[in-house]
């Protein structure tokens, strides 16, 4: 077990977003998180990342997940709204993912690890390029390298496939399969076709959380949680069946 949520409720201000949810993330997991907009997907990620505290219930993290001043959780935010004119190279972006303390010692040691992370996401060639001059997909790969540079045990991705093209999506899922050998992955996505053919299990968040250890989206899930589901098939059938739900 890496993270365990036990009847956790939380929200913003006086607005309750997640109500009494249970979820357990273990080593080797690859969980796809789906659910309607405003249903609390990003809130769930923030809870797990530790930037939001539970109002009620219990959130446990494994001791090996804790590190000096933080958690060994990598994070790829959804559209982080970065300034494309900020003077920074791809390599330096990845190195900021290794900064601890005042950063000076981690910065000196960071070069090799940053390059290794860029290598894994296929962006080593572009290490000296200006971050702002990269394409949307390339930027995502650099930010993914930043997320894995510190060797996290859990990787959290918030809709990594928005603003990118199909080729990037294919690369991304191949890459995530590889990364899943070393770390658990929790990924929010709109693309249910992609999600159900790549993840191991699916959780549906809509105030509550419905989770069963399978990557089949059941009718029960759709009905109980009003998840905007347009696929439910697997196997030999055509891969995408639109369901007027």
């Amino acid at each position: 077990m890496l993270v365990r949520l036990n009847h956790v409720s939380t929200g913003y201000g006086s607005h309750l977003v997640l109500k009494g949810i249970d979820l357990e993330i273990a080593q080797g997991d690859f969980i796809g998180v789906i659910g309607p907009n405003g249903g609390g997907k990003t809130t769930l990620l923030r809870l797990i990342l530790g930037s939001l505290q539970p109002w009620a219930g219990n959130l446990e993290r494994a001791p090996e997940l804790k590190t000096r001043g933080g958690y060994r959780i990598g994070y790829l935010p959804q559209d982080p709204g970065l300034d494309p004119r900020f003077p920074v190279t791809a390599e330096d972006v990845v190195r900021t993912g290794l900064v601890r303390g005042n950063g000076l010692s981690s910065w000196r040691r960071g070069g090799a690890r940053a390059l290794a992370a860029l290598e894994r996401t296929g962006m080593r060639e572009a290490r000296g390029a200006s971050f702002g001059e990269l394409s949307g997909g390339q930027r995502q790969k650099v930010l993914l390298a930043r997320a894995i540079a510190d060797q996290p045990l859990l990787l959290v991705l918030d809709e990594p496939d928005t603003f990118t093209d199909q080729r990037f999506e294919k690369d991304l899922y191949t890459l995530l399969q590889e990364l899943n050998q070393q770390m658990a992955i929790l990924m929010v996505s709109h693309d249910l076709g992609m999600i159900s053919s790549h993840v191991k299990t699916i959780a549906c968040v809509n105030e509550g959380l419905h989770y069963h250890r399978s990557n089949i989206i059941s009718r029960e899930m759709m009905e109980a949680y009003e998840c905007p589901i347009d696929i439910i098939t697997h196997g030999h059938l055509p891969h995408r069946v639109l369901d007027t739900h």
Binding site: G50, P80, V99, N102, L104
Partner: peptide, 22 residues
Amino acid sequence: IVFYPLVLAVAFDQGYARVRRL
């Protein structure tokens, strides 16, 4: 000099820096 990496991390992506507890 002393805080360059920290300054870069916060200036470039404040949201990410906060998630990393910087």
